[in-house]
């Protein structure tokens, strides 16, 4: 039986008079992949920012395993188990692929203040980093500088950083954005693999309906910053609110 990991209670943020996220109360369970959908500007990324701490909330709370993290910094939340991959690729461009991942492993190991040993001498950090590099199929590019990677490989690395962090809550923000048709499956397979970890919860902001159909255990729909629907994929997709707010637009496109 899956247990709740992450809980937001009346989570709200206002920018001036505009309510970007409006009293969202939602619980995310272990072993569950929740797709968050909604039209552009519905507040999906802002909701993510509130959970991972990039922006402070105006109201409401976020709790991880019943521990209130609403007032904690981004770095503190990361150490407690909130991991976030970004919509726009957000890496360390002039460091190598391996170094990008090694930095994550080093952060987890809490060894950032080690000043007097050589970074390359920590095999117990380099080895797991290399394993992640291999897992995301970037082994050939391990020593390459990130800025020289193709867009698709940068997206893979973005996901790889999160895999290296191995948080309790994985947050993906359009992980396949801008990837070609033959590159996207690699990333999606990686996310599908994560679903086997029964003690983790995965949150996925995604526009592509086929991706949601194959991966999601549950869908929540945001509309104008508020929670508009919540349930298993079949029910939510069939519901009026989705047909109107989201699918309607999608069907027109097809």
């Amino acid at each position: 039986m899956s247990h709740p990991i992450l809980k937001t209670q009346d989570l709200t943020v206002r920018f001036g008079g505009h309510v970007a996220v409006d009293h969202i109360s939602c619980t995310f369970n272990a072993g569950e992949l929740t797709a968050i959908v909604g039209p552009n500007g519905a507040g999906k990324t802002t909701y993510f920012n509130l959970i991972s701490g990039q922006i402070p909330s105006s109201e409401g709370s976020v709790a991880l395993n019943d521990r209130d993290i609403t007032r904690m910094s981004v770095a503190q939340r990361t150490h407690l188990g909130i991991g976030r991959a970004f919509q726009l690729t957000n890496l360390f461009p002039n460091l190598s692929v391996l170094e990008n991942i090694r930095l994550v492993i080093q952060s987890k190991a809490g060894r950032g203040f080690n000043m007097f040993s050589m970074a390359t001498s920590h095999d117990d950090l380099t080895r797991p980093a290399m394993e992640v590099v291999e897992r995301v199929r970037l082994a050939d590019q391990a020593d390459q500088v990130v800025a020289e990677l193709s867009h698709g490989n940068q997206r893979k690395l973005e996901v790889a950083l999160l895999i290296a962090l191995d948080p309790l809550v994985y947050m993906f923000d359009e992980p396949t954005a801008g990837m070609s048709v033959d590159e996207a499956p690699v990333v999606l397979d990686l996310i599908a693999e994560l679903k086997h970890r029964k003690d983790r919860s995965i949150l996925l902001v995604e526009h592509k309906m086929d991706v949601i159909r194959t991966l999601a255990d549950r869908i929540i729909v945001l509309h104008n910053g508020a929670l508009a629907a919540d349930g298993d994929p079949a029910t939510v997709m069939a519901s009026d609110v989705v047909q109107e707010a989201y699918m309607g637009k999608e069907l027109e496109d097809v």
Binding site: S52, Q54, S73, V74, A75, Q76, T78, H79, R84, F86, N90, L91, F92, P93, N94, L95, L103, V104, S107, K108, G112, L161, L165
Partner: peptide, 13 residues
């Protein structure tokens, strides 16, 4: 390189 991301992988910048 990227203080925003450094913070989000857990380093108190």
């Amino acid at each position: 390189e990227n203080d925003f991301r450094a913070e989000s992988i857990g380093y108190r910048v």
